[in-house]
Design a binder for these strands. Structure first.
Lengths: 156, 156
DNA sequence: CAGAACGCTGACATCTATGTCAGGGTTCTG
DNA sequence: CAGAACCCTGACATAGATGTCAGCGTTCTG
């Protein structure tokens, strides 16, 4: 397929697709007229690159773990794992934090709702947020190092 | 504590600490001589900001969810239910975002680990990342669309 | 006290990610 | 065929994260 479709399927702009290429992260085949021709594998690769970038990696870092971009789980993918684990650490810390906060909010919310209904029992009822449905959102529970400041000195 | 110590404990530079401040993400107390004085709560807040940033968020985006940076899940909350619901919305959206990122990372990680073990099956084994343990942290499982090209059109 | 170590501000510099525009082909369609 | 819709390259532009240096006060220590 050509640029437009590829970009659409990936949810990014053609600009970025070219950017990845220029950054040396991919090498797209060209048709005789010079148009880029993306194959499914290219899409997958670009999709991974996109994800890496949206996860906070720079093309520079990604190039470092180029072997982590191919379909075939071949190459050792040196470097990739540690870097990923590190990111995971950041993400998990934030998640834990958000989970805690989320619960606090839910609690408060429930409390208010109770108070409210008890209060306007039988009154004209002002109908403030009538049917509060707790928006589901992945299970949450344990909450280690609540507001953890650190998690391993000397970084980056 | 003062700048140097704070920065060290957070694993970032004083420069960035000032950057967060200038970005309107925190407001650090000053001693009479003008020196910044960081308290534990400031550290926690800065730590979260740091994590958000390293997870790919910009100060601009972070400012948007400023209420997610405080320790107390409590907070002003004046305005009641609407505000709470709104906050809940932010939190959940944030969580969704983090989940996506987290999962992308986990997927890649699992994939890599598999490839790796399959690869050095019985060989002299170079011991690259010997005992990769997926850091526990909220349950995760399904992994549809392995090398997922897409993940929902119109993103961001 | 002198010098080291540290703090502050502001400015300039680099790198990336992205957007957008221009100038100029190529393809598809009514 | 004419115009729309695409594609390409290259350049200029912005924003944000970070680094680093200068010029200048403050603290701590031998």
């Amino acid at each position: 397929m050509r640029a437009k479709e590829a970009a659409e399927r990936l949810g990014i702009t053609q600009r970025m697709l070219r950017h990845y290429e220029k950054a040396g992260l991919m090498d797209i085949r060209r048709s005789e007229n010079g148009y880029r021709i993306y194959g499914e594998a290219d899409l997958r690769r670009a999709g991974r690159i996109r994800d890496f970038i949206e996860t906070g990696f720079s093309t520079r870092e990604i190039r470092t773990m180029a072997s982590c971009l191919t379909d075939d789980g071949a190459g050792p993918c040196e470097g990739g794992i540690e870097q990923l684990l590190q990111k995971l650490g950041h993400i998990d810390r934030l998640r834990a934090d958000l989970d805690a906060r989320r619960e606090a909010v839910l609690d408060r919310l429930a409390m208010l709702r109770d108070a409210l209904s008890n209060h306007l029992e039988g009154s004209e009822s002002q109908q403030v947020a009538p049917d509060i449905t707790v928006p589901e959102g992945t299970p949450h529970g344990r909450r280690p190092n609540p507001a953890g400041v650190e998690s391993g000195a000397a970084r980056r």
